[in-house]
Design a protein around this nucleic acid. Sequence first.
DNA 1: ACATTAATTGTGT
DNA 2: ACACAATTAATGT
Length: 210
Amino acid sequence: MDVTTLIEESFAGVFEPQLIKEIVDVATLVEFDENDILIDFGQYMRAMPLLMKGAIKIMREDFDEGELLLYFLEKGDTCAMTMACCVGTKKSEIRAIAETAGVVAMIPVAKMEEWMGKYKSWRAFVFQSYNSRFNELLSAIDNIAFKHMDERIESYLNEKSKVNNSRILTQTHQEIAYELNSSRVVISRLLKAMENDGKIKLNRNNIELL
DNA sequence: ACATTAATTGTGT
DNA sequence: ACACAATTAATGT
C-alpha cells in the first residue's frame, strides 16, 4: 500500500503539504481487522493514531458490568483520549474497537508535540478534534439522559449504517443490546415495533434500514 | 438426507 | 427481568 497517497487522501485539505511530507516520513502504518481491540482500558499509549481508512467505535466501561458506545471515529479523525494520554502518560479510560477493517498511521509523541509549535494546521486539527469529540460526547450524554431506548436504537442504526456504508447491518440483537448497555429482549421488542412501523426489515443476523 | 445441537429471535408473565 | 417457545443455522452421522 502506498503511504503517501493514503495520507494525502485522508488529510489533503487539512494539513499543509510540508506537514504531510513529515507525516509520511515518521508515521507507521498499522492495519487492523474488524473487531480488533486497538486500545483497551488501562493501557498506556506511546503514539498518536490518525485514522486513514475504516471506522472505529469508542466504548466506555460502566461501573460494574457492561459497556456503552460513545461514538464512532471515521477517516480523518483521531482519538482525543490518546492525545491527552500521550502527553501525560496516563492510562486509557476508554476502549477502541475496530468497527470495520482499516488503517491507522501512528505518530510518535515527540513529533506530535513538535508540530504543535511548528504547524498552524496541526494545532488547528488537534483543537478541532478535541472540540468535535467533545460535542459527540455531549450528544452521547443527551441520548442516554434524555432519549428513550427506541430513539437511541434509531440513531444507533443510522450511525452504524453511515460508518459501514450500508443499509444492511449484520448485527444480532444481543450485540446491539451490549453496545447500548441494554438487554436483548428490550432491543428485540423495539426492533419489532420499528419493523411494524415500516422503518426497518428484520432478518436473522441482519437488519435492513428502509 | 436426517437427527441433533447451538444460536438467534419472539412472546407471555 | 425471567422463562420458555419458535425459528434458523451449523454439524455430525
